[in-house]
Nucleic acid binder design. Structure first.
Length: 418
RNA sequence: GUGAGUGUAGCUCAGGUGGUAGAGCCCCUGGUUGUGGCCCAGGUGGUCGCAGGUUCAAGUCCUGUCACUCACCCCA
């Protein structure tokens, strides 16, 4: 093989895999529209500084996973590792907040992280992102989750998924909790923690709560829980979110150990997990990030949102059926080639989808092809038909065929389809 | 960045102890004078990931290397 192959962690999508992605996008547009969300398109490339400031300097994403390079004028640019930073940048830059009080935005597109690929994880991956700016109402948190769930239901997936939810508190209450957690961790027998957790308890104590090593898991069972240390406002907010979810009949699992990888999250945080897609279990994740907009130099506008991993959803969407074409037009004689193309063109104008042969081949091979294409109808055009101004219309389901006048072709196909 | 596993036809995979590469599926053609699916017959397609080494002889053994996969880490 030549060296001109795709780079590690990037993928080419062909049918039927590509149609799964089309399906996910179509459903997203359909569902989000009902909640007043508007689709936006933003660049995949941004100034490196944007991500460093929003995601957090200490996170793995910024430390070692970004595709960062200098452009021809020596400016540091980065292929976006996530979408929220770019959406916020665009929101601030366009001064959208001055034109509407609440903005509900969604976008799809590729993200890039330089990680070791594995199941459910590639270097270029695709997300569906929704961001709601301009409200701190707990009803907004609840509605976002309800909408996300409705979307997953529209894909036919909700049955195998679980919503996990937690509150991370705010700059008011987090420091106090943080200190309690550090105290707790230091009081533990350090030898019993795994190597990573010994490091984490210094660098990022919240992450210890999330460790998968069984001994760490059990040690941490008695750790202080942030939900017990929320300030009155955060507590009230979180309870309000949960109560709407309950009233709406959306079941959830409280996960006091749920922390998120990006620094900007506060208060409500959540993940949708599946146990059927390998070690990377999250198909969607998100939460509230009230201070982010201001931190980026914008107005002090609260916000929340989620990202949904399309490759991970696709792992669950195995039996999406390709849409099939209406007709295949088989050409049986040189003299019929041009005429066939024009007839096919007429059918397409009438709204039918189909293909016409570009060359004369045996009836057998063309019917084989029509069968393989799974078309509803095969049309056959040879010299006999040309002479009489007719065309043969064959129903591939029943095998019944009939010569009709070319003038009545649209009508004949319509009858055939019904 | 760390660990494990796997590289043979487009795909899924066979190829004891070394002896000049196979099956199924797919694709193409034919079995029908202008008729698909099922069946039957035939055909296309491989420098066995790559490079060295051992040997009379390497898909098979050794070394290196690359790629892919899964897992850790981390995350959607």
């Amino acid at each position: 093989m030549s060296k001109l192959n795709k780079i590690k962690g990037f993928s080419d999508l062909f049918p039927p895999q590509s149609s799964v992605f089309v399906f996910m996008e179509e459903k997203a547009r359909q569902v989000f529209k009902r909640y007043g969300c508007k689709e936006i398109r933003i660049p995949v490339l941004e100034k490196t500084e944007l991500f460093a400031r929003t995601i957090g300097d200490e996170t793995d994403i910024v430390q070692k996973e970004m595709y960062t390079f200098l452009d021809r004028k020596g400016r540091s640019l980065t292929l976006r590792p996530e979408a929220t930073a770019g959406v916020l940048r665009a929101y601030i830059e366009s001064q959208l907040h001055s034109r509407e009080r609440v903005s509900k935005l969604f976008t799809f597109g590729p993200m890039f992280r330089y990680e070791r690929p594995q199941k459910g994880r590639t270097r270029q991956f695709h997300q569906i992102n929704v961001e709601v700016l301009g409200t701190q109402a707990p009803q907004a948190d609840a509605e976002l989750l309800i909408m996300l769930w409705a979307y997953l239901e529209s894909l036919g997936l909700s049955g195998s998924l679980v919503l996990e939810i937690n509150s991370l508190g705010c700059p008011e209450c987090r420091p106090g909790f943080h200190q309690k957690l550090v105290d707790f961790l230091q009081a533990l027998d350090q030898d019993k923690l795994c190597d990573d957790c010994r490091r984490r308890s210094r660098v990022n104590p919240l992450r210890v709560l999330d460790c998968k090593v069984p001994t760490c898991k059990s040690l941490v069972q008695n750790a202080p829980r942030i939900c017990d240390h929320l300030c009155p406002d955060c507590k009230k907010h979180f309870e309000a979110v949960l109560s709407v979810l309950e009233e709406a009949g959306l079941s959830y699992r409280l996960n006091p150990f749920l922390v998120r990888g990006l620094d900007y999250y506060q208060r409500t945080t959540f993940e949708i997990v599946s146990s059927a897609i390998g070690a990377q279990t999250a198909v969607a994740g998100g939460g509230r990030y009230d201070g982010l907009c201001k931190a980026l130099g914008g107005p002090d506008v609260p916000g929340l949102g989620f990202a949904c991993g399309m490759e991970r959803l696709a792992l669950l969407l195995t039996d999406i059926k390709e849409q099939r074409m209406d007709f295949y037009l088989a050409v049986l004689h040189e003299q019929a080639l041009n005429k066939a193309l024009l007839l096919a063109q007429r059918l397409r104008k009438a709204g039918y989808a189909g293909e016409v042969s570009f060359e004369v081949k045996s009836v057998k091979s063309q019917l084989r092809l029509a069968n393989k294409l799974n078309v509803k109808t095969c049309l056959l055009l040879g010299v006999d038909e040309i002479e009489r101004g007719e065309i043969v219309v064959k129903d591939m389901q029943t095998g019944v065929q009939q010569a009709v006048s070319q003038d009545d072709l649209e009508q004949a196909l319509g009858l055939n389809l019904s």
